[in-house]
Design a protein around this nucleic acid. Structure first.
Length: 630
DNA sequence: ATAGGGTTAG
């Protein structure tokens, strides 16, 4: 929705800029000759006009008034009056206003002595909170220093926020230097923003260790410092560190607020730790943390991504205030669980209720269609994005379409779609296509595409894994071995698969061939036993995805040591019969484990919920919710 | 006039 007054103001401001330039050049040559305040009488007049403008701005709280005041400013010829300009920018952080003020700041015709730190700060703040314009905030700040204006305690939170948005570690470090030089290194608010800035900046290794250093050295910290650091760990994917830090925060007796709890919930989401997430939910209830829309959204997302999408939906239904993010979390959550028909229904409900869809919710919707085989529906929604909602599809939307065609087995159509789409396919799109080639037996085509991809992206290990899997399916062990050698030579390693499971408020993690667990012996005996039961029920090990060229018996042994099989055996041993089992895998589940889990769900009468890198698999009675497409 | 948070293809 566009506010009419807002539009009005925009056009006026654009006009006023041209007016002013003309005035400077022709109608008001006075400016050129006397950059200093004009003569006494004129000064008196100016002061009166100035006071009247300031008074008007003081009372201003709506766009419509702002427009009137702007007209007034123009009439009084006070466009570049520093006091008026400062008040104007402080009253409205509307970009047009800010750009307008900035043009004076940078204009060689302006008397720069008249602009003070407040004005620079206000403009820096406005740019710092606007995407794509963070660099301008730094320009304004640098200009301020060049002109020998001293920064004050408000300056650095704004500047550091801009650095965080830009994400350049070297820039951040140099600003940190200025913070110390100007003596703001002891301000808690500045330190908090330093922590946040380092958490957001990358450059070589990334800045999170610098953040931790600032954080550890803080003389006193508050909930903001802890939230910034916890949120930082979440952002870089170090969810366990985030949880550990939260525990430390409780020990230290720092009281978390709703923002802290949002980050803690995100950490649970990252780990897939449902029990931990439920504990956080009860903590929020018990400690009466204010449950605003962001916190509720984080809860909905946590439940969906930790495997309980029904709880996520119920929570969403109970929310009094919802926004587009709430809807997106539910739709995306249902999509991940293969409940595409429901996701589509929720989307339709959203549109009916008057919420305008954005590009993000369409990613969830298209992904829902893809994971549930709703190809025609997906195509219609894809067209409708542009037609009905004026949203230009991005690479993610094209990616969903490619995935949709691939899952439906239409690999050739998917390739044609990629070749004809108006934007360049990215590696993700190619990998989607390659995996589909493997899954649907288009091995030669898959090999060709992967070789090309490796030329463009030689250091991305999943490309090699894909190629290796294609050769395995071709039974070309020689080429497969060569891929492995090539990876070794480049110093690359396959990311080890690992599986997490929660039991009695503990988190257990298994890797392939894991022997570290106290129950290790029983676990392997259980794996053997389930193996025998499964074979009796007709299970055939899928040995084509095993990495090395070894004989079939050894391959089977390798498969049996996969982390998900160990985790499931562990769960069978330690939970009462009939209990639902939830596990979280860091990579995609392999063909063999997928097939084995189906058998186990039937033989042992267990519902097994597996989260893998991309989606959920609900195994029940020998079947999987993904309908074997993944 | 200052700081930290929720959704994003495989």
């Amino acid at each position: 929705m566009v506010c009419p007054d807002h539009e009005n103001l925009k056009s006026k401001l654009i006009l006023s800029n041209t007016n002013l330039n003309r005035q400077n050049r022709v109608a008001n040559p006075h400016n050129h000759q006397h950059p200093h305040p004009p003569s006494t009488t004129a000064a008196g007049n100016t002061r009166a006009a100035e006071q009247s403008c300031l008074a008007l701005l003081q009372a201003c709280n709506t766009f419509s008034k702002l427009t009137q005041i702007h007209t007034h400013i123009l009439k009084s010829g006070l466009q570049n009056n520093p006091l008026v300009l400062t008040k104007f920018t402080a009253t409205s952080s509307d970009l047009e206003v800010i750009n307008y003020a900035t043009s004076f700041l940078f204009s060689p015709e302006s008397d720069t002595r008249l602009y003070d730190t407040f004005l620079y700060n206000t403009i820096t703040r406005a740019y710092a909170q606007t995407n794509n314009l963070k660099a301008k905030a730094i320009d304004v700040y640098k200009l301020m220093l060049e002109r020998k204006k001293l920064p004050n305690k408000f300056t650095y939170p704004f500047v550091l926020k801009a650095c965080a948005g830009i994400g350049d570690l070297n820039l951040g470090k140099s600003v940190h230097g200025s913070v110390m030089k100007f003596g703001f290194g002891d301000e808690v608010n500045v330190q908090n923003t330093l922590v946040h800035m380092y958490c957001c900046c990358r450059g070589g290794e990334g800045g999170i260790e610098f953040a931790r250093k600032v954080f550890d050295e803080m003389y006193k910290s508050d909930s903001v410092s802890w939230s910034a650091m916890i949120g930082g760990y979440v952002r870089v994917g170090r969810s366990s560190d985030a949880i550990n830090l939260f525990r430390e925060m409780q020990i230290k007796g720092v009281c978390p607020d709703e923002i802290t709890m949002v980050s803690v919930l995100s950490a649970c989401t990252g780990l897939g730790a449902l029990e931990l997430g439920k504990w956080v939910e009860s903590y929020v209830e018990k400690e009466r943390v204010q449950k605003n829309v962001e916190l509720s959204n984080a809860l909905v997302d946590m439940f969906a991504k930790c495997g309980d999408v029904d709880k996520a939906t119920n929570l969403f239904r109970s929310m009094r205030e919802r926004n587009i993010v709430s809807w997106t979390s539910v739709i995306g959550g249902l999509a991940m669980h293969g409940r595409g028909v429901e996701a589509v229904a929720v989307f339709e409900e959203m549109v009916r209720s008057g919420v305008t869809p954005d590009d993000v919710v369409f990613i969830g919707l298209l992904s829902a269609c893809s994971h549930s085989g709703l190809v025609d529906k997906g195509k219609r929604y894809f067209d409708s994005m542009r037609k009905d909602f004026s949203i230009v599809p991005k690479i993610e939307h094209y990616g969903c379409m490619v995935d949709m065609l691939c899952r439906a087995g239409l690999v050739k159509e998917a390739l044609k779609f990629v070749q004809e789409m108006p934007i360049d396919p990215n590696p993700v799109v190619w990998r989607t296509l390659i995996n589909a080639c493997r899954a649907h037996g288009e091995l030669k085509l898959g090999e060709k595409i992967t070789r090309q991809l490796i030329r463009n992206e030689p250091m991305h290990e999943s490309n090699y894994v894909l190629l290796s899997n294609i050769y395995a399916k071709m039974s070309d062990w020689e080429k497969k071995t060569r891929i492995r050698e090539a990876m070794d030579m480049k110093g690359m390693k396959k990311i080890p698969g690992s599986t997490m499971i929660e039991l009695d408020n503990e988190i257990y993690e298994f890797v392939a061939g894991d022997k570290s667990h106290a129950q290790s012996k029983e676990i392997y005996e259980m794996v053997d036993e389930t193996g025998k039961e499964m074979k009796r029920a007709g299970y055939m090990p899928t040995t084509t995805e095993v990495l090395l060229d070894i004989d079939d018996e050894d391959k089977e042994d390798t498969l049996n040591r996969h982390s998900e099989k160990l985790a499931i055996a562990f769960a069978l041993l330690n939970t009462p019969p009939g209990t639902l089992i939830r596990i979280v895998k860091n990579l995609r589940v392999c063909d063999d484990c997928h097939s084995a889990t189906k058998f186990i769900s039937k033989i042992y009468n267990r519902e097994i919920v597996v989260r893998d890198r991309n989606r959920f698999h609900h195994f029940k009675n020998g079947l999987c919710s993904c309908r074997d497409f993944w």
